[in-house]
């Protein structure tokens, strides 16, 4: 009976996805295909639109890909991206979880949580450009707030040395995004039925237990979202490192993969083909890593259930 109903409603699945598909086809499909194709061509040079397949100009079809993969600068960019992302993500998710725990705790009588919640997201409202200026000035050299506070006699040039650059970029990234992550997590917690918490309370669970045994499992779906989107956002990191120190400072201490791609495409030689190849590589990396995250965080019960349902469905169909 249940299956029959599901089958009957299937057409709404198609119907409701039409707007997305249509919009995607109009605005995004062509650029995506174009990018993919470019990776295998010789297109470079500003304003140039004429391209040839690499084999037709006597080159290996995958030249652009091997160029990127063997480039020291790409390796550096890839490494930087990971270092900066991890340095920012660990405190980001840590504080976001902590604040979520504090601010959604039904038992604590902390006042002003509403205000804190609102304030913590606000660094995300400010544009990356303003944020970059703020931190440039804070870490200015030889005159700057931090230098004046801590070592006025021996000012240190933070923004031309590798590790200070990485740490500052990671910190700004953290500062701009922890509130965003917190808001996502809180939305997940708010979606949990209050009855679950009441039940936990009655069972005598303390707060820490409630958070780890009830809250976290219940927002697992949102955690998956946060992880995957942070990963994607992290691997595409651009604004803050670009505006704060740029791609060239300290031999590219803050050069991320996305900055590498933009440099290829727009800064200097307009190597559209290599930039496209690098994009495809980055895309594949993201897909693989996301797949791993999905796999690790998959809902085992749900998966089993789904499989079962599918079998049922198939059986039901056969029955008709």
């Amino acid at each position: 009976m249940r299956n029959k109903r599901l089958v009957n409603y299937a057409k709404y699945g198609y119907f409701f996805s039409i707007p997305f598909i249509l919009t995607f086809c109009i605005f995004t499909l062509y650029p995506v295909i174009y990018t993919f194709v470019l990776g295998f061509t010789d297109l470079k040079g500003a304003g140039n639109t004429e391209w040839h397949w690499l084999p037709s100009v006597g080159k290996n079809l995958f030249t652009n890909f091997t160029d990127v993969l063997t480039s020291k600068t790409f390796h550096k960019a890839f490494k930087n991206t990971w270092i900066i992302w991890i340095l920012n993500f660990i405190p980001q998710i840590g504080f976001a979880l902590l604040f979520t725990a504090w601010f959604t705790d039904r038992r604590s009588k902390v006042k002003g949580t509403g205000l804190f919640k609102i304030l913590f997201y606000m660094p995300n409202i400010i544009t990356a450009a303003s944020m970059a200026i703020l931190f440039q000035k804070l870490f200015g050299y030889p005159v700057g707030a931090v230098n004046q506070l801590f070592n006025a006699n021996q000012p240190y040039n933070f923004l031309i040395n590798e590790w200070p650059i990485k740490l500052i970029v990671a910190f700004v990234q953290f500062f701009q995004w922890y509130g965003h992550t917190m808001v996502n997590l809180i939305a997940g917690v708010i979606g949990i039925s209050p009855e679950i918490f009441e039940a936990a309370e009655i069972d005598g669970a303390n707060r820490v237990q409630t958070f780890f045994k009830v809250t976290i499992p219940c927002i697992r779906q949102i955690m998956l979202f946060v992880l995957v989107t942070s990963l994607i956002g992290g691997l595409n990191m651009f604004d803050i490192p670009q505006l704060l120190v740029g791609a060239k400072a300290a031999n590219g201490a803050a050069l991320t993969t996305n900055m590498y791609i933009r440099n290829q495409a727009f800064d200097g030689s307009y190597l559209y083909n290599r930039a496209a190849a690098a994009s495809v590589i980055l895309f594949l990396v993201i897909v693989i890593l996301s797949a791993i995250v999905f796999y690790i965080l998959r809902d085992k019960d749900e998966a089993r259930l789904k499989k079962l349902r599918k079998q049922e469905l198939r059986a039901a169909k056969k029955g008709f």
Binding site: P31, V32, I33, Y272, A275, S279, F283, I286, S290
Partner: peptide
């Protein structure tokens, strides 16, 4: 969601 937007901009 996983497509890096940088280069697709050229086409767009």
């Amino acid at each position: 969601m996983m497509i890096p937007g940088t280069v697709t901009m050229i086409g767009f």
